[in-house]
Design a protein around this nucleic acid. Structure first.
Length: 920
RNA sequence: AGGCCCGUAGCUCAGUCUGGUUAGAGCGCUACCUUGACACGGUAGAGGUCAACGGUUCGAGUCCGUUCGGGCCUACCA
């Protein structure tokens, strides 16, 4: 901070400086101290294709809050960072870039994106795998570190010396190891099955990569003529073009309408093939016509029917979504053109019975939004049941805690219904599947090292597999592969399992579930003990943020504008578990205001501190310096504590406890709210205002050092509590306030600075009573419109101890209310009733020139009386209720009784005043 | 088709798990205060049948059920 402290906090310079220093000094490496409990978390690795978005900002913000909190609690903390190669996403981006280089003059836009993609795909095939993969690496070097740099700027307290990438050589060894072991155990197999095929991407994708979308479709009713006899069976279909691959018509065996046709044949229109009618339980007699066309090569259900009835499988759609030779006259047509042609021809032949509107859910490729084609294809699969069972059990038994709890059930449901996972992709960028094929005997070899001869026939001509693995295969190993597995590294012993994993719900099955499976399989232990599912970030219209919708708030832009601390705080205070987060510039702005508030509180303290004689400043610094790790205990030196000190320490103690509790349960919003409220509305509004006159005293009679020490202690403690949420401003002010050397960091200091014996309910109660008086006086003054003046007042109170309390603090009361003098009297307020205000404990009146309108006064008191009567009748009702008195907990009953007594007292006074007013 | 979540102030949301005195916050609004930390501020206010109905309970925003409205996820019925 410069000698001239600016009035308005500007984060830019401060944030960039500290961000750089934290990384350079490597202060976020875990220690070697074995006595400390450790807290480890590996980052959900962002894709190298990405740049930071609000979701990352929230995720990293939440993680960082927890990491800093645990570190400050003295734990040995590891936050391991890294990135994911994102096989399919990266390949698409690099293709698009190739396309853009080839066609640089197009206007950017969605259509152009598609053109570039298409052109890029073509150019990729021209280049061949080797050159293309080289290109991907280049792209990774240039862009893959973007998020890392952004994270550093955001102050993420990662151990950057342990940064990992899913295609690091060591990581790749882990991937191969896992693949080979699973294959050897029969948990990975290769086979020809129906898979989700994206004709645009040219690869198989897993069930999870297919998103379902409701679309308005049609149900076409098609007549299949019976063989050698008149009549027909009508089938209903949403995809008429697939009829070209039909190999049967299926009906339910119990369906009387069709019973006699089972095992007969029908003629497949257009192709004039004859296909059998089979009976299968799968068919629902109530749907459509009760007869289903069976297309084994292009529908997973039909595939199963075909298995049961040994039907042939005819592929009529190829890998690019075009009709094959088998489609006869339709060969070469795109699948949707073929649909139109088929419908047209059926209509012409009078075989189309009717068309109905029918809403259907279509499978869309998660990456490119093309309609996915179920297609028969030879792929690699992972058997899920044996792997899923232990992974399901550890969650069910609570060895992994899922937070919030609602996600536990969703996880368990999903795990119970899990299907085998198609892990091979017809892509080039990724981990190549470690398999080879013998060209002479077709044997399949899976091995860690490249084989040179076929073990079966001894042939030396082997062809390596070209498919790569689904990205999520390698991510599933993240919790242990990042620690050096399969080598027996010390990190594995130290940091597996991790304490916590944080992720969004959207990747719970893609990633979370699979990490648990692989962890159990290869480490024999859960990968993490808790799994916290964070919220989704939405915009002001509750829309999910996405680039295609164009509603993204760029974190870099807003952090530049409002400061990282403000954005982090805004996200944290909005992050109630299990609910989505709506962000808007307004929110960031208001927490920028909070940063500014903190800044100005510090400015106030520092400006006055520096006016003190050097020796006093040193005295204060010395009192603060040996800040004991165990916490400061004001009860040890009560003689130095005024009422306000005791109150603020007690409050500090309370919120420290509450924040610890909230963070322990991932209730970020609660923790943030507590510190916000404490700092602004208790520390600034009351405590600073209270001690203001003391510490602004200059010249011969400066404030007692004790006042300063207490103030500095509370401020420092508040900075510590704030630090996990707002790392930058707290680091800066901590150095200024405590004169800490530059190389030290608040992030390595204790979180909790108050000791155990600080809760002081008596002080809290007394201070609250004084606050009550101050608010009442301000209120009365405001009602009379006397804000600009400094009138005097009268206060009357029955309770001698309260009265003494008021008298003892009358200077502060005057300053905080803007009153000149107050007459404090024992008893009740007598005499003229106009302008008298009552509470249960005291009466007050502002002295002023103007004559009050008795009618208005009566109205005021009558309204008050009415409110009191209402409240009183309610408490009366409760106390009259035998059930309540006998069954409610004693302190609740006592509370109502106390309130009832207060109301009675208050009401009595108001009624009395009203009466006197009537007599005037 | 099944499951989950949400409905609280003009707006955005806490509070519901664990029922208990007077339901909170931010933004916005009104009045006053340009007071030597901060006008990105302060003080004092206005604003709520807690979606509706029923139940459990001495007591329900909170627990249970039903309905209405909104959102999301999972699913192989052509």
């Amino acid at each position: 901070m410069e000698p001239e402290i600016p009035k308005i906090y500007s984060p830019e310079t401060i944030e960039t400086q500290w961000a750089r220093q934290w990384v350079e000094q490597k202060i976020y490496r875990p220690t070697d101290d074995p006595s400390r409990p450790r807290f480890a978390l590996v980052i959900p690795p962002p894709n190298i294709t990405g740049s930071l978005h609000m979701g990352h900002m929230l995720e990293h913000g939440e993680i960082d809050i927890l990491m800093r909190w645990h570190r400050m609690k003295g734990e040995n903390v590891l936050w391991l960072p890294g990135t994911d190669h994102a096989s399919i996403a990266t390949q698409m981006i690099v293709e698009r870039e190739l396309g853009r280089e080839a066609l640089p003059d197009l206007e950017p836009g969605p259509a152009t994106q598609r053109t570039w993609q298409h052109e890029g795909q073509r150019r990729r095939r021209e280049m061949g795998p080797e050159k293309f993969i080289e290109r991907c690496w280049k792209w990774k070097e240039a862009n893959g570190g973007k998020i890392r740099e952004q994270m550093k700027r955001m102050g993420a307290s990662c151990d950057w010396t342990r940064d990992r990438f899913t295609m690091d050589p060591a990581y790749t060894r882990a991937v191969v190891e896992v693949f080979v072991r699973l294959y050897d155990e029969g948990l990975i197999y290769r086979g020809k099955y129906i898979v989700n095929w994206c004709p645009r991407c040219g690869t198989a994708v897993s069930d999870l990569e297919v998103v379902h979308e409701e679309r308005q479709g049609k149900l076409w009713y098609i007549r299949y003529p019976l063989e050698k006899r008149p009549g027909h069976i009508t089938v209903a279909t949403t995809r008429p073009e697939t009829m070209l691959g039909d190999t049967a018509v299926a009906v339910n065996p119990s369906d009387a309408r069709y019973r006699e046709l089972v095992d007969y044949r029908v003629e497949l229109p257009l192709l004039k093939r004859f296909i059998p009618v089979v009976a299968d339980d799968f068919v629902d007699p109530k749907f459509g016509t009760g007869a289903v066309k069976v297309t084994p090569a292009h529908d997973p259900n039909d595939y199963e029917i075909a298995e049961r009835h040994q039907l042939p499988r005819i592929e009529v759609i190829d890998e690019e979504g075009r009709m094959t030779e088998e489609a006869g006259p339709y060969r070469g047509l795109d699948r949707f053109e073929a649909r139109q042609a088929v419908v047209r021809d059926l209509t012409a032949q009078g075989l189309l019975e009717k068309i109905e509107d029918y809403p259907l859910s279509v499978g869309i490729c998660q990456r490119c939004h093309s309609i996915v084609e179920p297609r028969l294809s030879t792929q690699w699969f992972m058997k899920m049941q044996p792997l899923a069972e232990p992974a399901r059990r550890v969650v069910e038994e609570g060895r992994i805690q899922v937070v919030p709890d609602q996600y536990r059930k969703i996880y368990l449901d999903w795990m119970a219904r899990i299907h085998d996972w198609c892990i091979s992709r017809q892509l080039w960028w990724g981990h190549r599947i470690p398999a080879w094929y013998c060209l002479s005997c077709n044997a399949v070899m899976v091995a860690k090292e490249t084989p040179h001869v076929c073990p079966k026939c001894g042939s030396g001509s082997l062809r390596p597999e070209t498919d790569v693995l689904d990205t999520w295969f390698s991510s599933a190993l993240w919790p242990f592969a990042t620690l050096g597995w399969p080598e027996p590294t010390p990190d594995i012993g130290n940091f597996y399992p991790q304490n916590l994993m944080i992720m969004g719900f959207d990747i719970l099955f893609f990633w979370g579930a699979r990490m648990i499976m692989m962890g159990m399989k290869f480490m024999g232990e859960v990968p993490f003990r808790e799994l916290y599912i964070h919220a989704l970030v939405r915009d002001a219209e509750r829309q999910k943020m996405s680039k295609t919708k164009g509603n993204v708030i760029d974190p870099l832009e807003v952090t530049e504008k409002y400061g990282t601390d403000a954005v982090r705080f805004a996200l944290a205070i909005s992050a109630a578990p299990g609910t989505d987060i709506v962000v808007s510039p307004d929110k960031f702005d208001s927490y920028r205001g909070f940063a500014n508030k903190i800044w100005n509180a510090a400015r106030f303290v520092l400006m006055n501190l520096r006016k003190l004689p050097e020796n006093v400043q040193h005295q204060i610094a010395d009192a603060l310096k040996p800040m004991p790790g165990a916490g400061f205990d004001p009860a040890a030196a009560p003689e130095h504590l005024a009422l306000a000190d005791r109150w603020i320490f007690s409050r500090l103690w309370t919120i420290t406890r509450e924040i610890n509790e909230a963070l322990g349960q991932y209730r970020f919003h609660e923790a943030a709210d507590k510190i916000y409220h404490f700092f602004w509305h208790e520390f600034c509004d009351w405590y600073l205002e209270w001690v203001k006159s003391e510490i602004t005293k200059t010249g011969e009679e400066p404030a007692a050092p004790a006042t300063w020490v207490n103030l500095a202690r509370v401020f420092e403690a508040a900075l510590h509590l704030l630090h996990p949420f707002m790392p930058f401003i707290t680091e800066e002010l901590w150095h200024e306030l405590g004169r800490h050397p530059r190389e030290e960091s608040i992030s390595l200091a204790p979180f909790n600075l108050v000791g155990e014996r600080v809760a002081d309910p008596i002080a809290e109660k007394q201070f609250e009573t004084v606050q009550e008086l101050i608010v009442a006086l301000r209120n009365a003054k405001a009602e009379l419109n006397l804000q600009k003046q400094k009138p005097s007042a009268q206060v009357a109170c029955d309770d001698l101890r309260v009265l003494e309390l008021f008298r003892a603090h009358q200077d502060s009361i005057h300053r905080l209310t803007g009153l000149q003098a107050t007459n404090f009297a024992r008893g009740r307020m007598t005499g003229e009733a106009a302008g008298v205000h009552h509470t249960a404990t005291f009466d007050l009146r502002i002295l002023h020139e103007e004559k009050l309108d008795p009618a208005a006064e009566r109205l005021r008191l009558e309204r008050e009386k009415e409110k009191l009567e209402q409240a009183l009748s309610q408490s009366q009702k409760q106390l009259d209720n035998q059930g309540f008195v006998s069954r409610a907990p004693r302190d609740v009953v006592r509370g109502v009784e106390r309130r009832h007594a207060e109301l009675t007292e208050h009401l009595g006074k108001v009624a009395e005043s009203l009466e006197r007013l009537g007599n005037e």
